[in-house]
Amino acid sequence: MPRLDALRGLAMLWMTLFHFGFDLNHAGLIRQDFYRDPFWTWQRTAIVSLFLLCAGLGQAVAVAQGQRWPRFWKRWAQVAGCALLVSLGSWWMFPRSYISFGVLHGMALMLLLLRWAGPRLPGWALLGLALLALAAPQLWQHAFFDSRWTNWVGLVTRKPVTEDYVPLLPWLGVMLLGFALGRAWLARQRVLQGGIAAPLRPLAWLGGWSLSYYMLHQPVLLGLLYLYQRLI
């Protein structure tokens, strides 16, 4: 659906600008605190939220269109495989803070849960579970979940030292909201359906290649920065 693809493309573009700033900072060309400055931390939260909201919307569309399990598993394997590559690449660049459960890791797990439970639950149950997932880390934490092997749950007492961290809780709540909204909008045949204005078509094209773009944009940005530093 072009409108959903355009929304996903917007998330990709915003992410690229954010990562470009992060890379400039890592290269020493600017001085920003990406880990504590609200200007950057809130942007990260918004970008991840938009990603997962789009993922939930996309699953609602897939279910409505009768997507079969083999096609789901093919896409899921791509996401999970890319998550593994992200872990390996980040371990090479940031051995002390490599990504063990970032956005793709979280998405792979959430997609499994959503695809199994989402079609079976009524709208009110989806919304209730979404709110519970969003609130859970604020309501209860335990030191058991602070290790790298268990922090994927999200009930940590302290944020782990890692370059990206998107645990099951609270982020499953965002994907559940996306699925619930998508199902409601599809039932009313509005919002997601229909065409888009010509200026937005490049965003829709970008959104249609979101996973490939996600995996390639950082190596390209880092390569360009490396060339720039070699030339100046």
Rank of each mutant, 00 (worst) to 15 (best):
Q59T: 12
R8K: 09
A187N: 11
Q65R: 15
L4Y: 07
C82M: 15
A133R: 01
Y226W: 14
T45Y: 12
R44D: 15
D33N: 10
L109C: 14
F94N: 09
L4P: 15
W73H: 08
F145H: 01
M215T: 01
G195T: 11
L109M: 10
F94R: 07
A83I: 02
R148I: 11
A198C: 12
W14Y: 08
L52K: 04
V103M: 03
W152M: 06
L129V: 00
G66L: 05
R36P: 15
R75L: 06
S49P: 02
P122N: 10
L177S: 09
G106P: 04
L224V: 10
G102A: 03
S147F: 09
I232Q: 11
I232A: 12
G28E: 00
H142T: 05
L169E: 00
E163K: 07
L24N: 00
P202Q: 06
F72P: 04
Y165W: 12
L177G: 09
A77D: 07
L211M: 01
D37V: 03
G9I: 08
G56K: 00
R115N: 15
Q138W: 15
L200T: 07
P160A: 05
V103F: 04
L225G: 03
W116Y: 13
W205L: 10
L176K: 02
Q193M: 10
Q193W: 10
Y214S: 03
P70L: 03
P119K: 02
L211D: 02
V63G: 10
A125R: 13
Y98L: 13
P119L: 02
Y226F: 11
P122R: 03
W73K: 12
T150C: 08
D37K: 04
M175D: 09
G154W: 00
L169F: 03
L181C: 13
W76N: 05
G28A: 00
D164Q: 00
A204H: 01
F94V: 12
F101N: 03
L85F: 08
F179V: 07
L169H: 00
A83D: 00
M110D: 04
L17P: 11
